[in-house]
Nucleic acid binder design. Sequence first.
DNA 1: TGACACATACCGACTGGTCTGTATTTTAGA
DNA 2: TCTAAAATACAGACCAGTCGGTATGTGTCA
Lengths: 203, 203
Amino acid sequence: MKTTAKRSPENTRGKILQAAFDEFYKNGFQGGSLNRIVDEARTTKGALFHHFKGKKDLGYAVVREVIHPHFKQQWSDPLAHSTDPITDLKRIFRQCAKREIANGGLVHGCPLNNLAQEMSPLDEKFRKSLEKIYVAWRETVAAAFARGIKAGKVRKDVSPRKVAAFIVAAQAGMAGTAKNAQNEELLLQTGQALFDYFDSLKP
Amino acid sequence: MKTTAKRSPENTRGKILQAAFDEFYKNGFQGGSLNRIVDEARTTKGALFHHFKGKKDLGYAVVREVIHPHFKQQWSDPLAHSTDPITDLKRIFRQCAKREIANGGLVHGCPLNNLAQEMSPLDEKFRKSLEKIYVAWRETVAAAFARGIKAGKVRKDVSPRKVAAFIVAAQAGMAGTAKNAQNEELLLQTGQALFDYFDSLKP
DNA sequence: TGACACATACCGACTGGTCTGTATTTTAGA
DNA sequence: TCTAAAATACAGACCAGTCGGTATGTGTCA
């Protein structure tokens, strides 16, 4: 089987990227091991260092090419054209919570939040690329609330930016505390309180 | 000065503990180095392994003997007998935010949250001892809200447990996002939104 | 044939942890 | 109260293992 080993650089790179995401997600960036990554991806150090300059570069690529797109798809896109953010956010939260509970994502929490907590004080480039995602998320939520106000679905005196910043923070915190408690009931509890907060923004 | 080097095990242990807290706070638990800890504490590996079984044991001790008491003093105690949690929480938050901004705590975030995010999925004993702190915090807030309801300072239809769980999560998330953004204005922004939420709980 | 895409062997640095030796303090017995 | 023994509190060299990273070789493809 050695000689038939096909060559597909795009594929190899992708496998390394995915394995790196898994490893960093489970063990953190500092705790993550390149050796385990290449083992998991069924390739070698040579391949890894051919495609990436080093561990940090690999980390940046994971943020840029795995976490960011995933996040955009799961959170930003569904809200992109919403004119009723309260209703839509509730739906998205419910979906996300169900999905996380179903496939055990509760154990390791939010990959964005995890990396951000660990790496942002240690490496400025990490912080900036992660912050990009947060900013995008906040802007998406804020824009949706601005449209919601125009559409009469949200009270006119709420500040979209303020509310968006708070919701993003609350969501991150909820994922974190639920992960630490290993208790999905806690996630549901905080979720209800968040929904109550949403309702307090209705006209 | 060698001969006058006095011996005080309590003191040595304490210095190691404090140095360990600093190291883990800055570099995380996995990224923290025992060598740096003993250097910082001006002692040696022998002393460290005499007082602690190993790195993990040292970590548990940091949680139990440094983080937990600090947390209790800063957050739980001031709320212990409050009958007006909305007013008192606002005051405590303001104090904490001011303090964190002043001494640069914004850079490294909340030590409890940091350790929890990193270690709770990796080590059950870590998770449990950290969860103890969260539970105590939630219970303190919930009890204060229960008293607040009785005192007529909080709406009667709010669920103390639900609200407490949400506030704790929100606070953790706010510290985390502010740390990642390295932006104290964001902390103030989310703080205002949190205060608005508090006000929505008034009768 | 030359550029690319790996594989493999290997490097020095550093890790958490152990071992042995020794100075200090506490305890026990006369 | 003086002293011997035992326990404690370190110090510092040292260990095997792992880390991220590199150098070199080899097969593949245009």
